[in-house]
Design a protein around this nucleic acid. Structure first.
Lengths: 192, 192
DNA sequence: AAAAAACCGTGACTTTTATCACAGTCAAGA
DNA sequence: TCTTGACTGTGATAAAAGTCACGGTTTTTT
């Protein structure tokens, strides 16, 4: 399981074996069952979490109890609540597992230490954050300019093979449409 | 005009006078007329731009010619196309002035130099990016869970006194609704 | 194996929003 | 000054999406 992270860091961050060992030294593994929480509303997020297997979801519960999914975390993705992590404030969100999942956790202190001691780790972290921001910007743009069908097609592009883990009503939640509307979009798209 | 930036850096980044002087040394001032471009689709973004006065808009033009506003830049805000800036790729967006505006530009090389030589500058930069990301996340959440009226109210909160610069049909564009719908939301809100 | 729960599709109806058309105000420019 | 264009509001209509209800399938749990 640690091998997945090692491969990832070698490929994405170009870390040396020694540097990878430093990262490995401060990771904690955590196995989650389906539906188990990684982070619950009100908790403070202290970790950056690498998804080694399985599938996670990051979502918020509205006042009426409805769930709104901000993002999914599949293999080789990192999940955390950055707002809570950075500011030390209670999270407004939940993170839980959509399937049996294996995570590798790095605590905030250790993470910051890695950032400060391994230049390539910092560079990779910066690139990752930049890409996340760009993705968020593009998603906003999609929301203010695209039709629901276009949003759905872009989603397929971002998460090509996600339907193994994620039921359609959660995809609908991610897109901000009702499950019925998504069903009709898919239907219409299949025909044309 | 440079004083506005100096005050900003002193307050937000806690820079010393010497450090502020270093920043000041590499800023270029630019005055823009109403409707003048700061960045045009296809250009590569080479600067981080501080808004000393006036008001800017960051938007994308759809295939059908429609304009979709991603964000506004008012006094004390920074504007740039991060995706283009970071990757050196042609921008998909436009930035122009909604009113006579004064900007302070810092070129990428100089900016990165400041980041690497002034620790507090880097820290401030990181905090700024983190806040931008959080804001983007919250805006996405708003789009997938709020009604148009709620989105409008949150907009009022983010940009309390923006109506001096920005016509309502641009607010509508920012929110992703038609100008007629925004007009009706405001009307309804005023009555209740 | 049986029961319960989750998941998905679909029709009928309601609500929301977009689009189109028109009118009035205001500011900039000829 | 007159004209033009930008901006805003509002009514009428069409399109899109949400909501409700039902049925059927699959998966999970007991």
């Amino acid at each position: 399981m640690l091998k997945i992270l090692a491969d990832y860091l070698q490929k994405q961050a170009s870390l040396t074996d020694d540097e990878i060992e430093m990262v490995r030294a401060c990771t904690v593994t955590k196995k989650l069952r389906k539906r188990q929480y990684l982070l619950q509303e009100g908790d403070v997020c202290h970790y950056n979490c690498f998804v080694a297997s399985g599938c996670m979801r990051f979502y918020r519960v509205g006042e009426d109890g409805s769930e709104h999914i901000m993002t999914f975390g599949v293999v080789n993705w990192w999940v955390s609540d950055q707002e809570s992590y950075n500011n030390g404030t209670p999270s407004k969100n939940n993170i839980d597992a959509l399937a049996e999942s294996e995570l590798l956790l790095i605590e905030k202190k250790d993470w910051e230490n890695l950032v400060n001691t391994i230049p390539r780790f910092r560079d990779w972290r910066d690139r990752l954050k930049a890409r996340s921001f760009d993705a968020a910007q593009n998603r906003i743009m999609s929301h203010i300019s695209d039709t629901s069908e276009e949003k759905y097609l872009k989603f397929l592009n971002s998460y090509p093979d996600i339907f193994n883990c994620v039921p359609l009503h959660m995809v609908a939640s991610y897109l901000g449409v009702s499950r019925e509307t998504l069903s009709r979009i898919r239907n219409h798209y299949a025909k044309s």
